[in-house]
Design a protein around this nucleic acid. Structure first.
Ligand SMILES: [Mn+2]
Ligand SMILES: [Mn+2]
Ligand SMILES: [Zn+2]
Ligand SMILES: [Zn+2]
Lengths: 146, 146
DNA sequence: ATTGATATTGAAATTCAAAATCAAATTATA
DNA sequence: TATAATTTGATTTTGAATTTCAATATCAAT
């Protein structure tokens, strides 16, 4: 969490941008949570530290964090853009429960390797990818009803 | 294309819905294209057959086609919902060119199998999944500039 | 073929997250 | 501190997705 902060402060300086109280508050709030947060989620969290903070600033700061490669987008399939930690976090796929909306993070190296091979087959240069598996989690499938 | 039509007509009857000229026009337009079409795309295509057709009807019919499992959603990553053929079409993943927006359809059986294994590891019952790889296609990577 | 209950239609309005606007406030550097 | 540049938050705007509703079409039963 220290490294991310230093990285962001440096990113701002290099871009000729300013380090503001709001940006620091929002960064801290983001780093403190391990969830996949929407702009609104993070807005509500950050507001607890500084009630005068605006949604627009959270929106813009999250965008900056993505540019700085501290955050990245996640699409859980509900049409709302969410963000997760990226700095020093490995790539992973998501298993998303359709009932309780829990998100399991997982990686399978051989899936990753096979994707590389698949791209090669089409002379396609991969830049990024996303794999989301929708289904029912252990807890929810154990329930009798619903 | 004949089977899909029969299937849709049957779907409508079973649901107590009506077969209208608009629905037939829109279904035909959808079946005729092999592209990943947005509501607006299909609206523009269908309008050539019947200029009085409305966007809302295209939207609603596409929704019905998805329910009838004739169409399914595709997310190319540009925030616009698209649809593709589903009836008698196997599952596949997408390689999406960031430069020319070409979409390559591909499947790797061992990726699919590994996904199953990954789910098992978490006692997760998969219902559906999507894998999108973003990158640069052969044609675009061959170009000197841009 | 006519009826009539019910579903459907298209134009327009609404929703809602994402993005843009802008005057006032804050920051960085000298 | 003075200055120029950036940032802020309230507000507005955008645009795709979805809903509304009065007029129209469908279809099973006459
Ligand atoms: Mn994640
Ligand atoms: Mn496809
Ligand atoms: Zn669950
Ligand atoms: Zn290309």
């Amino acid at each position: 969490m220290k490294a991310e902060r230093a990285h962001f402060f440096n990113f701002l300086k290099e871009k000729g941008l300013k380090l503001t109280q709001q940006r620091e508050t929002i960064l801290n709030a983001f780093l403190k949570t391990e969830k996949h947060v929407s702009v609104e989620d993070l807005y509500n969290i950050a507001r607890r530290k500084d009630s005068t903070i605006g949604q627009a600033t959270v929106f813009r700061t999250l965008k900056l964090l993505a540019e700085a490669e501290i955050a990245s987008h996640v699409d859980i399939g509900d049409g709302i853009r969410r963000f997760e930690h990226r700095y020093n976090h490995k790539h992973h796929d998501h298993l998303i429960c359709l009932k309780c909306h829990k998100v399991i993070e997982a990686v399978d190296e051989s899936i990753e390797q096979r994707q590389e091979a698949l791209c090669k087959k089409f002379s396609f240069q991969p830049v990024s990818h996303r794999l989301e598996i929708f289904g029912v989690c252990k807890k929810c499938s154990g329930k009798v009803k619903n």
